[in-house]
Amino acid sequence: MTDAFRIAKRRRAIHGWLLLSPALVMLSTFAFYPSVATLWASFFSRETRRHPSEFIGLDNYRFLFEDPTFWKVAGNNLLYAGVTIPISIALALVMALWANSKIPGKSFLRTAYFTPTVLPMIAAGNLWLFFYTPDIGVLDQLFGLVGLGSMNWLGRPETSLWAICIVTIWKESGFFMIFYLAALQTIPPELKEAADIEGASRWTYTRRIVLPLLMPTTLFILVNALINSVKLIDHLFILTKGGPSDSSKLILYYIWELSFAFFDSPMAAATTVLVLAVLGIVAALQFGLLDRRTHYQ
């Protein structure tokens, strides 16, 4: 190796790190450091006026696992994910197939399906409040027309989480549709022609050709949907505040409540660590299962 070559190599390395440094400083401050600090904080007891915070090992996790509210909230979030993810993905697929077909007015369809994506969740909460409010709400009035009585959708433990799920499905289906729409447009038309010549029905064509070709897109959407099932909680602030009696409380809302309403940051930290662990599994899923070439090269 000549000196000139070595100097050039060193210069490139300096340039590289200089270019990266602003972003690395920011990422370290607001992502890496807080992750580690959260883990660390979860091993300490809550600071009160009488007792200073002290190291208690895994006790916070033990308290968390003994707390029925935690299990209630975790169960809610599982149900929330289990309901919203498959339904929004299925709806997104149907929407994309329609928006890509020969149906008249398909650009209107696309706009209508996609519009909720550009609205803030807070605004969505307000819009849906008009549907859910007992007596004067749109739903109650519709049910009133067919002779059903008034129903407090948000105020009853049996229905509150479902009402929350519906808003989320409404919000994210159109977003996922876009990705299916793009994937559909890359399917060569010859495949459709060949299927027609073979006499395959549209259903067979969709099931045997379109769906398998959409598989990578579905996995990509699935990862996004999993992340959303942790992240999309803004509408809780408007619609239910997690109630009644925790029936619609989700994990991230619970973390917010622990930390900023009950000021119990060690417990909030422990809960956060558990969420980060789940997100880590999702990350592993993404890197392991998804075709790296499609999205990362």
């Binding site: 401050t29 992750s35 930290a269 956060t272 880590g280 993404q286």
Partner: peptide, 21 residues
């Protein structure tokens, strides 16, 4: 790879410590 990891460390989830920072 480290930076890609941040795709999954949502700023929303880190509210407790980010507020302190």
């Amino acid at each position: 790879t480290l930076i890609l990891l941040q795709l999954f460390i949502l700023p929303e989830v880190l509210i407790v410590k980010n507020y302190a920072i």
